[in-house]
Design a protein around this nucleic acid. Structure first.
Length: 198
DNA sequence: GCGACGATCATCT
DNA sequence: GATGATCGTCGCG
């Protein structure tokens, strides 16, 4: 059921970003199972991508995990507040990663409502990378964990998304120069109600 | 439903 | 010392 390690290590990070749509992401944190369908992703293609933490072969304590083999989790903190979930792809020594921006929650809704602090708006539960990580109980301490572990993993349940239902557009929130400012490396499922924005 | 804005701190210069 | 791969709230109408 788990997507095998080989999936994350073969193929281009941009292609893999689109292929993650429709797959199921789960976490088991503090004994609580939560998860849902991946509906929005962004590709970060180090080292040539100006939007990537690994741009120009930058390698620091923070982004060290980006250089490990594909199939592990890269977590970092943004704006001092929000934990971000990324999937490392490629071979050892490469530095590609996929930001998970939104999931459609399907499992552990009560726990996610509790973690998020409200219970009357499920559409917002996992809407945006910071919100999603919080709902899933993910923090920076999960940096470097394998997707073959029992804390976080991805399953392919055969829900293929037709190409015409995948939207590719520029990534969100990057204050960088062209062409990377506008390159269409954000992917989401057309018409889905759980994406961070249209 | 939407735009503006402040929160808040790890990380890098 | 400056800067975010963001979010929730507020004011509007």
């Amino acid at each position: 059921m788990k997507v095998p390690e080989s999936f994350y290590q073969s193929g281009d990070v941009v292609t893999l970003s689109a292929q993650l749509l429709g797959k199921h992401l789960f976490t088991l944190v503090e004994g609580e199972l939560t998860g849902g369908v991946i509906v929005e992703t962004e590709a970060y293609r180090g080292p040539e991508d100006m939007g990537s933490h690994a741009f120009n072969h930058r390698r620091t304590a923070r982004n060290e995990t980006m250089y490990t083999k594909g199939g592990v989790v890269y977590m970092y903190i943004c704006y001092g507040i929000h934990d971000m979930l990324n999937i490392v792809t490629g071979e050892e020594g490469e530095s590609h990663a996929i930001l998970i921006r939104a999931i459609e929650p399907t499992v552990g809704l009560d726990i996610m409502r509790l973690r998020r602090g409200f219970e009357n708006d499920d559409r917002r539960l996992c809407k945006g990378p910071g919100a999603l990580a919080k709902a899933l109980g993910l923090k920076k301490i999960h940096n470097g964990i394998s997707l073959q572990s029992n804390q976080i993993w991805i399953e392919d349940r055969g829900d293929l998304i037709a190409p015409e239902n995948i939207v590719a557009c520029p990534r969100i929130g990057l204050n960088i120069e062209e062409p990377y400012r506008s390159i269409p490396w954000r992917f989401y499922i057309k018409g889905n109600k759980y994406i961070s924005r249209s």
